[in-house]
């Protein structure tokens, strides 16, 4: 009887493991991955949602089984057999979650550093991060050396202004655009300035988000991989039309990107360096943006929002 129960439980647990792994790979809960970081994110997310799904099945399974199996029979007024504690069982359900969350913390930290491009915490199974590859003369700790597989040392840096309720992306040659155009395969660095209140730059397909803070510069780095048009969403409540503060991000091949930039630079020269390129949605027109931008420039790039 006891062996039969143990066998049955093993089978059920095996099924739960299979279901978790399957769900971790087929959850379909995330949009397309458009950047290198998004691919890393999706691997971590798949693992965590798989584990969560398995635990979900176990807990709900036990609850439903208990409700059916252990319901009181009519007329039975006696108490159930008392069971106050079981030390080994309690040790297991303390130790296993502890190990599990510590593992989640280390794995998350590893992914986090890799997404940030600041070098990865070494994990035995990720041999491509072997510290010997980045041995250099400067004496930097190998733990925090740049990943040897990172493509380009110098990221493409763009200045970004966030304001109620629009984004402005600045390119070399006096180009200010309401659309964010970036080339694939190159690390991009966005330097944010918030001109009024907090905003947050979020592209769901990049799985990255960064608050923009008035008075404090912040930045975000990522490497676009997949061409296409994506939404830039403001994720920090910024006022009445927060929900409408959106822009488009266009990921292009380096050639397309260069062609777009050249075109914009020519237009900007033709229009006295104050051209606002691209579409604007939904609440500000080009004139308003220009006004805001000149106010921003006049203040020397510092916050210049006065409130009466």
């Amino acid at each position: 009887m006891k062996r039969k129960t143990a066998f049955l439980i093993s089978i059920l647990l095996a099924l739960v493991v299979v279901a978790s792994i399957w769900y971790g790979r087929h959850h379909g809960l995330l949009p397309a991955a458009a950047g290198k970081e998004a691919v890393l994110y999706d691997r971590l997310f798949g693992t965590l949602i798989g584990i969560a799904f398995g635990l979900f099945l176990i807990v709900q399974g036990v609850l439903i089984y208990s409700l059916i199996k252990f319901r009181r029979k009519p007329g039975d007024t006696a108490d159930a057999a008392p069971m106050h504690e079981n030390l080994s069982l309690e040790l297991v359900w303390t130790a296993v979650p502890t190990v599990l969350v510590m593992w989640v913390a280390i794995y998350s930290f590893d992914v986090y550093t890799e997404m940030r491009g600041t070098g990865a915490l070494m994990m035995a199974h990720q041999h491509h991060h072997a510290p010997v590859m980045v041995a250099d003369a400067s004496g930097t700790s190998p733990l925090f050396s740049p990943d040897a597989t990172t493509e380009v040392a110098e990221p493409l840096a763009l200045e970004v202004q966030a304001m109620q309720f629009a984004w402005i992306f600045n390119y070399p040659g006096d180009v200010a655009s309401a659309e964010l155009h970036v080339p694939t395969g190159r690390r991009i660095r966005l330097n944010f300035a918030a001109m009024d209140v907090l905003h947050a730059f979020w592209v769901p397909e990049l799985r990255l988000k960064q608050d923009t803070i008035p008075g404090t510069p912040t930045h975000l780095e990522f490497t676009p991989q997949k061409t296409g048009e994506y939404s830039v969403v403001c994720a920090e409540l910024c006022g009445s039309y927060h929900g409408g503060m959106r822009a488009t991000m266009v990921i292009q091949t380096p050639e397309e990107y260069q062609a777009w930039l050249t075109e914009q630079q020519e237009l900007a020269q033709a229009y006295d360096g104050s051209m606002i390129a691209g579409r604007l949605e939904p609440s500000l027109d080009a004139g308003q943006i220009r006004q805001l931008q000149s106010r921003f420039m006049a203040s020397g790039g510092h916050l210049n929002h006065s409130h009466s």
Binding site: Y41, L44, L55, L63, A105, Y112, M115, R207, A235
Partner: peptide, 26 residues
């Protein structure tokens, strides 16, 4: 118990900094 566990599991996912950065404020 049944519903709280769901919140607990999504809470562990949110506790992971890289996961949170995507879903924060969503």
């Amino acid at each position: 118990i049944s519903m709280f566990v769901v919140g607990g599991l999504s809470g562990v996912m949110l506790g992971s900094a890289p996961i949170d950065i995507h879903v924060h404020d969503t």
